[in-house]
């Protein structure tokens, strides 16, 4: 790669969007080219300036409440529905029974192991979205991992086992106690550029943690998926289970999981 090639992909390089061999080639060029290395520093400084100091304008809370009130509960408004003729009612009841009972039968007899896993992914994404929407999502703002983790004592019947205190790439923003399916969860929120990454920690026993299609991240074996535009990582580590959810790139989520693996 010459200087022109490197500068063309410098932003991709900084954002981890290059394949590993191309990444290595750029790294090697930067190590031997002071001019491009300086350009790399300038681009990095510009990114930091934009991410950390450009004023952000979140939507006013009253406006968000108005938006929430105006988004209908269902796509089809009750006002537009016509009453059904009586003779269709019996057929409708039968259809409803089939619709209700068939999935139950499916779950009881034929349900694939993926069904429970899918419920966990859905729950993780829903919880993450609730946190984003909440006006006051964190019960304890970050004042250091040594304040945040002890805060969970007495609020949970397990220790969350998280040692990663956050860093410049993933600053710890705070924590909260919530529910994940049928149990209490420790929720930690880390930042990534302008985004939030939610980490849910629960007692793992009794949940259908994925056992197939896992990939190794450090010492962990994680299950990676996405739902509704969010990336999700699930893994079990001894008695505890973890779910990471965010709209950041999959590579960024892996990076955070690696930090968890190294620190726990």
């Amino acid at each position: 790669m010459d200087c022109g090639d490197v500068r063309e992909v410098l932003l991709d390089y900084q954002q981890g969007r290059l394949a590993s061999d191309a990444h290595g080639q750029v790294r090697a060029h930067l190590d031997g080219c002071p001019s491009c290395a300086h350009e790399d520093r300038l681009e990095h400084e510009l990114t930091l300036a934009l991410e950390r100091r450009l004023p952000q304008y979140p939507a006013p809370l009253a406006f968000k409440r108005r938006l929430g009130a105006q988004w209908p509960a269902e796509a089809s408004s009750a006002a537009t529905r016509r009453p059904w003729p009586k003779k269709w009612t019996a057929l409708a009841v039968a259809a409803v029974l089939v619709l209700v009972l068939a999935p139950l039968a499916w779950q009881a007899v034929l349900a694939p192991p993926d069904a429970g896993r899918s419920a966990m992914v859905t729950e993780a994404v829903n919880d993450h979205v609730r946190l984003l929407q909440s006006q006051r999502p964190l019960e304890i703002e970050n004042s250091g991992i040594h304040q945040v983790i002890p805060w969970f004592s007495g609020r949970l019947d397990f220790a969350p086992g998280v040692r990663f205190a956050g860093d410049a790439d993933f600053p710890l923003r705070g924590g909260a106690v919530g529910y994940f399916l049928d149990r209490k969860a420790a929720t930690l929120v880390y930042g990534r550029r302008l985004h939030s990454v939610s980490v849910f920690v629960v007692k793992a026993e009794g949940l259908p943690w994925p056992r197939r299609g896992l990939e190794r991240v450090g010492r962990l074996e994680v299950y990676r998926t996405s739902a509704r535009g969010f990336n999700v990582l699930l893994w079990r580590d001894g008695e505890l289970g973890y779910a990471l959810v965010s709209d950041v790139a999959p590579k960024d989520l892996t990076l955070l999981a690696e930090k968890f693996a190294r620190s726990s």
Binding site: K64, W71, P72, A73, E74, N126, V129
Partner: peptide, 8 residues
């Protein structure tokens, strides 16, 4: 609904 929550 779910789509609304995510959209918001």
């Amino acid at each position: 609904g779910a789509m609304g929550r995510e959209a918001l």
